[in-house]
């Protein structure tokens, strides 16, 4: 399947109604760590250039906080788009993080929910 179609099918979201207002990027608390803004990512999905998105870290940096979706005037669930992008990578069995390299000192204090949620978003 074409990657843009895959994003659409996994996320269930159609991004064509986005008019690039930029509210999602303005609302994003982790925009400072992203190569491309959420708005740019949505644009790239619109023009079906998913490969370009995969060169950036945006969908890995997204922390699934739903701030963008809560404010999107077109009610696009951008968080789901980010999840679809992560899933496309993870389903190829490519982990984003190395579970074995998390320092023991951290594992002693991290809440289980931090690890469960992290592994769900960053490991295959």
């Amino acid at each position: 399947m074409d990657l843009a179609e895959k994003v659409k099918s996994i996320s269930g979201e159609d991004v064509l109604s986005c008019y690039q207002c930029g509210l999602c990027s303005g609302s994003c608390p982790v925009r400072f760590a992203m190569d491309l803004s959420p708005t740019q990512v949505i644009r790239l999905v619109q023009i079906r250039n998913i490969e370009k998105i995969f060169e950036a870290n945006t969908f890995w940096i997204c922390s699934t906080c739903f701030a963008c979706y809560a404010r999107c005037p077109r009610e696009i669930n951008i968080t789901k788009i980010m999840e679809a992008l992560r899933q496309i990578r993870l389903r190829r069995d490519q982990d984003k993080i190395s579970v074995n390299e998390i320092p023991k000192e951290e594992l002693k204090i991290l809440p289980p929910i931090a690890l469960v949620s992290n592994f769900r978003k960053t490991t295959a």
Partner: peptide
């Protein structure tokens, strides 16, 4: 606003 959530595992800087 988000606290950084699960990035606490691998991106403490964020």
């Amino acid at each position: 606003q988000c606290c950084g959530s699960y990035h606490t595992v691998d991106r403490k800087d964020i």
